[in-house]
Amino acid sequence: MGSTTTTTEDKSKAAAFRIGLGDITPNNLGQLKRLNTVLFPVVYTSSFYKEVLEVGEFAKIIYFNDICVGGVCCRKENVPGSTSLQNLYIATLGVLAPYRRLGLGSKLLKHILENAKLPSSSGPKIAKVYLHVQTNNEEAVEFYKKYGFEVVEKCENYYPQFDVKDAFKLEKVLIEKN
């Protein structure tokens, strides 16, 4: 839902900073929870966070000058009628407001896409990556389009609890179905 685009500011004037990705563990899960509470209006359940701890590279937090300022959480979903393929759903991807336009969102998304494309020796492969975005969040739509996502569907009343209830479904196909 949250979004970032790369910086448009003059990079030559910016003071140097460090960026790094980190694993989510039971010990720092509190930071991810705090991030999601601030970034998203949805309240995620404890079963959501339990899954986050089990998806490995598909859930990450990102550090800016050693401070945790953003994160991404995905889940794998089975493809009906297939044992060799899975879809990857991006449940959350967001960066704290003061740290946007610094390339952090891109770094998170690229990490997910790279790992989704990795050939896995065993187990199912990722067929496509998809997500939902509120229809009024143009910035986010543009962001995902830049990385090859396409709007495939408008889901009406997807977020019944919000003012803007409709959502776009965006997806990026990695393996074409035969």
Binding site: E9, D10, K13, A14, A15, F17, F64, N65, I67, P98, Y99, L102
Partner: peptide, 12 residues
């Protein structure tokens, strides 16, 4: 002066 843009952590 606008000569240097500080990282957001500077404000923090």
């Amino acid at each position: 002066s606008g000569s240097i843009i500080e990282p957001p952590t500077a404000l923090l």
